Amino acid sequence: MFSRRMLIAVGIGLFVAINLIVISLTSRQNFDVQGPENVLITLTAPFQLAVQRSVYFVSTVWKNYFACVSAARENTVLKQQLTLAEQIENQNRELTVENARLKKFLAFSSTASGTYVAARVIARDPSPWFKTLMIDKGERHGLKKNAPILVPEGIVGQITKVSPNFSRVLLITDRNSAVDALVQTTRARGMVKGNGDSSCSFVYALRKEKIQAGEVIVSSGLDQVFPKGLKIGTVLAVKKDHSHLFQDIIIQTSVDFDKLEEVLVYKQ
């Protein structure tokens, strides 16, 4: 008995042999197909067509597969290049914005009297009851406790704690902060105290003083901490109560504390 594998092998061998004979016969010039040869060609032609189409189909699928694989790889590489380009573009934007800020700092420090040390804001107090931040400069950079912290827009606060490489800054919006100040136009005296939010109060301004919304409040220099004439903010609202000796004045600080990234430390 012949095994199934042997029968399949014999069948394939006969099929290949018949195809070779047919190809040899049909390749002759002026060959007239007749008799048994005509029958042979008739029987094998459909198989040859099927084999040819199968080979073409497999070849096409194989080429398309490699084309898809190549396109997928190229797409991955292009995505990586696009991501890198976007990162570089974003870094360039950040450098442009930072360069503009530092130019303002340089212009301010070159026109103002005294010596300044530039520092970066590295942390903020998350507590809603305290308005403080940390900077990356300390005793090794010549900083001391109570040193004023400024930006070109105005007063930020003062150092309350200093370590070799870092310092804690109390913002003027903190309730524990106080800056001796005056109205720039009328020279009316008072004290700027923090309200624990983005605003401050101008307290101890006598009721007789004429103070209006929009007027600028600056440091007086009498507290021996902040240099004279530094901008603190502008008057938002004024309330006079005839039963009180002092006015109730709310001011908006000139510094946007939520956007602070760099500051200047004034070295006395």
Rank of each mutant, 00 (worst) to 15 (best):
R5T: 15
M6S: 13
I8N: 09
I8M: 12
G11K: 04
G13Q: 09
F15D: 03
F15M: 13
V22M: 09
I23H: 08
S24A: 11
S27V: 10
F31Y: 10
D32L: 15
P36Y: 14
P36G: 15
E37A: 15
L40W: 05
T44P: 07
A45R: 08
P46F: 05
R53G: 15
R53P: 09
S54R: 09
K63N: 13
A67K: 00
V69Q: 14
V69P: 06
A72D: 13
R73N: 13
R73Y: 06
R73T: 13
E74S: 11
V77T: 11
Q81S: 11
E89A: 10
Q91R: 13
L95V: 08
R101S: 06
K104V: 13
L106M: 10
F108V: 02
F108T: 04
A112F: 07
S113F: 12
G114T: 06
Y116S: 00
V117H: 09
V117S: 04
A119E: 02
I122N: 06
I122Q: 01
A123H: 06
D125H: 02
T132V: 14
M134F: 14
K137E: 03
G138Y: 02
E139P: 12
H141N: 11
H141P: 04
G142R: 01
L143I: 01
K145Y: 11
N146R: 15
V151C: 05
V156E: 02
T160C: 09
S167W: 02
R168P: 02
L170T: 05
I172S: 00
R175E: 15
A178S: 03
V179M: 03
D180K: 15
L182V: 07
L182W: 08
Q184E: 15
Q184H: 10
T185R: 14
R187M: 14
R189K: 13
N195S: 13
A205F: 00
R207S: 03
R207P: 01
K208A: 11
A213Y: 06
V218G: 00
S219N: 02
L222H: 07
L222C: 08
D223E: 05
P227L: 01
L230F: 04
K231V: 01
G233A: 01
V235R: 04
V238L: 05
K240T: 11
K240H: 09
H242N: 15
H244F: 14
L245D: 15
L245H: 07
I249G: 04
Q252I: 07
T253M: 01
V255E: 05
D258Q: 02
L260G: 02
V265P: 04
Y266W: 06
Y266S: 03
Y266I: 04
Y266M: 00
Y266A: 03
